[in-house]
């Protein structure tokens, strides 16, 4: 079958007067990891929210294994069980323990028995190395642990694809590593993923393709090597340079501030 797992065709979306997405298209094959990056306000999060129809697009089509999920009479709840989502601010269910956070979807949506759901949930927690924290409430977990529970919650539903909406940007630097590690693990295990992130290290390790989004338009796409060696457009170069200054060597930052002072 030639049909890709996920096919996004010319998606447009606006919030009132603000045109956020201006015709975005891409395809995602099985076991692909796609990294979307770009400056804030470029429509990355909106794109993800369009894909799982939390905010349906104004126009354009999205196909999941050949099913048009933007068609009017589609059962969106059934579609969403096939698309996992990991949120920037975790959004764990505050009144439930970690294990119940993971198993509630299995029980209420997939209708599994309690024991079976618990077993599967533990399995998912184990994949993000949190099995021993199963009986803690979200508020008792660190940010990194909470985000891993969020990942386990998406994993447990066994979706076709998992969408990550800036999973590490609300975290302390110390906690980012454990979340990225968990994401690396499940990416290597063959999970199809769309990741909005600025973690270039993660992108280089697993991304099959990267997309640079700015102002609702795909500016450039290519492999991680392409972006690290020879990005074409000026906009991308500038953005990557800034990222490099932020995450990379502090000499560059010093140089930059000296230049500022020189002016």
């Amino acid at each position: 079958m030639d049909e890709p797992l996920l096919r996004i065709v010319d998606v447009w979306k606006s919030y009132e007067d603000l045109q956020v997405l201006k015709g975005v298209s891409f395809e995602l094959a099985e076991r692909d990891v796609k990294v979307i990056f770009g400056p804030s306000g470029s429509g990355k999060s909106t794109l993800l929210r369009c894909i799982n129809m939390l905010n349906p697009p104004d126009s354009g089509e999205i196909y999941l294994r050949g099913d048009n999920i933007t068609a009017p009479n589609v059962d969106l709840n059934a579609i969403r069980t096939r698309i996992g989502m990991v949120f920037q601010h975790f959004n764990l269910f505050a009144h439930l323990k970690a294990i119940d956070n993971v198993s509630i979807g299995l029980r209420r949506v997939k209708g599994l028995e309690k024991q079976e759901a618990r077993r599967k949930a533990l399995e998912a927690l184990n994949r993000v190395r949190l099995a021993e924290w199963a009986d803690h409430y979200p508020a008792q977990l660190s940010g990194g642990q909470q985000q891993r529970v969020g990942i386990a919650r998406a994993l447990a539903m066994e979706p076709d694809v998992i969408l990550f909406d800036e999973p590490t940007s609300a975290l302390d630097p110390e906690l980012i590593g454990e979340v990225l590690q968990a994401m690396l693990d499940i990416a290597k295990a063959g999970t199809t993923m769309v990741v909005v992130t600025h973690e270039m290290g993660f992108a280089r390790a697993v991304a099959s393709e990267m997309i640079f989004l700015d102002d609702g338009v795909v500016i450039e796409r290519g492999t991680p090597e392409h972006f690290s060696v020879s990005p074409k457009s000026k906009r991308v170069k500038r953005f990557l340079n800034q990222l490099d200054v932020l995450y990379g060597s502090h000499e560059k930052l010093l140089k930059l501030s000296e230049e500022e002072e020189g002016k």
Partner: peptide, 17 residues
Amino acid sequence: NPGQMEAARSVGMNKIQ
């Protein structure tokens, strides 16, 4: 938090669930 509703919808629950 409205994020709770969104997260619940994202695992496939309908609005009532």
